[in-house]
């Protein structure tokens, strides 16, 4: 049996608020194997975001142990954590978090910049990833010139550019319309088939349906962990197109369509 990519033992996070502490996450023990596609669900305040932040090495646990690809992350220094985030994890955020007034290409190059990759190589790798997400024609566009779906694809290219083992997507479809959401999920599924482990935080069952495993949080505890037969996003997209063809007026049928958001950083 292969070693798990993510292994948490007794992981807990406690915030000190006012008079006492609030347990955002209690005594979590869970493992994720390489190549899994996991949806993390739960109502707001359930601890799912805290879990993602800990897994993403953006926050440090109050107690418990966490290994990422066999490395004990809980004992690492800030700089070591930065290196782990840089090399092993790609982040996709609800609000895209692209740098404004910066071209798509430069946005995608950002992780390589911090990895110390030479300029020429940075460019080549970023261009390749932008091509992979279908934005080869728009590498010089700035975020406000792109649709929401395109911005999210730039963000996915950025998450991919350093060849991470794990992609953490925090409500990646939260700012997108339903069709663009499915497109993004199809992209994530394609990456998953290439062997990248994917964790998606979502509160939408429609999005979770594309995952092969669903973890449910409530009140800071993991309450349910179920395997799931994943729905294929490409098929769902085709089905949606057939609906659109029969329905006379919808107006959001183009690939570039989707919610436009100019919100940057």
């Amino acid at each position: 049996m292969p070693a798990p990519l993510i292994r948490c033992e007794g992981l807990a996070k406690r915030y000190e608020v006012g008079g006492g502490g609030v347990h955002a996450l209690r005594d979590l023990t869970v493992s994720v194997m390489p190549g899994e596609f996991v949806a993390v669900m739960g109502p707001s305040g359930s601890g799912k975001s805290t879990f993602m932040n800990l897994v993403g090495c953006l926050d440090s646990p109050s107690a418990g142990r966490y290994w990422l690809a066999g490395e004990a992350v809980d004992a690492m220094s800030r700089d070591q954590l930065a290196a782990v985030r840089n090399r092993r994890i790609g982040f996709v955020f609800q609000q895209f978090n692209l740098l404004p007034r910066t071209s798509a290409l430069d946005n995608v190059e950002l992780p390589l910049l911090y990895a110390g990759v030479p300029r020429q190589q940075r460019r080549e790798r970023a261009l390749r990833r932008l091509g992979q997400v279908g934005l080869a024609e728009r590498v010089d566009h700035h975020p406000p010139q792109l649709s929401g779906g395109q911005q999210q694809r730039v963000a996915i290219a950025r998450a991919l550019v350093n060849d991470p083992a794990l992609i953490l997507a925090d409500e990646p479809t939260g700012a997108l319309d339903s069709r663009t959401s499915i497109e993004v999920m199809a992209l994530l599924q394609a990456l998953n088939r290439e062997g990248i482990t994917i964790l998606v935080v979502t509160h939408e069952p429609e999005v979770a349906a594309f995952a092969s495993r669903i973890i449910l949080f409530r009140d800071g505890r993991l309450v349910r962990d179920t395997a799931h037969r994943a729905q294929d996003a490409t098929t769902a997209l085709a089905a949606l197109d057939r609906q659109t063809d029969t329905a006379p007026v919808t107006g959001s049928g183009t690939l570039a369509g989707g919610a436009r958001s100019t919100r940057g950083i």
Binding site: D79, R85, N86, R87, F91, Y114, N162, I265
Partner: peptide, 9 residues
């Protein structure tokens, strides 16, 4: 964001 993608302090 820069920190998330790997910028050190």
């Amino acid at each position: 964001l820069r920190m998330a993608v790997g910028a050190r302090g």
